[in-house]
């Protein structure tokens, strides 16, 4: 299965910046790669090639998942369903499971999907505040 993720350097898998997600992600759901169960997860960072998320249940570190997301952009609500993605890492513990999934290029490159993913990426990129990453706005962070 091919990804649109560019070939990554050996020691740092992610070459394209991923942007911190925010509450404009109204929904992020994935199917469990093994059981197919639909799980609601917390989006952490995102770019048009993939998404990192935190789940409250263990997930395998490989396998194919389907991603469903709803994002409130300035232009309106973007809704993407059954986006194929491949699990690329999973770090589990008793506090939850931090995972990364790369969107599958064959599907992403068709139709409007890529432009919608890019729109989300741009919206998140525009909202990044290098001086105040977490919006604590007190010069402390």
């Amino acid at each position: 299965m091919s990804h649109i993720v560019p070939e990554a350097p050996q020691q740092d898998k992610r070459t394209r910046e991923r942007y911190l997600c925010d509450d404009r992600f109204r929904r992020l759901e994935i199917t469990h790669p093994d059981s197919g169960e639909l799980l609601s997860v917390t989006p952490v960072n995102f770019n048009c090639y993939g998404v990192a998320f935190f789940a409250s249940q263990p997930l395998p570190e490989s396998g194919v998942t389907k991603v469903c997301l709803t994002f409130e952009s300035e232009a309106g609500t973007l809704r993407l369903d059954n986006l194929l993605a491949e699990m690329i890492y999973s770090l589990g513990s008793d506090v939850g499971c931090y995972c990364g999934a790369a969107f599958v290029s064959a599907q992403v490159e068709t139709g409007d999907t890529l432009s919608e993913l890019l729109e989300i990426e741009r919206a998140l990129a525009d909202a990044q505040n290098q001086e105040d990453r977490y919006g604590l706005d007190d010069g402390e962070s």
């Binding site: 911190l20 997600c21 917390t42 989006p43 952490v44 960072n45 990192a52 935190f54 409250s56 570190e61 890492y89 770090l91 939850g96 931090y98 977490y134």
Partner: peptide, 21 residues
Amino acid sequence: YDKGRASMEALDIIHRGKGKQ
């Protein structure tokens, strides 16, 4: 079986889990 993540990624997760987790 795996390396830990960077401090900032952990802070990102905590930030995103505010009010929920």
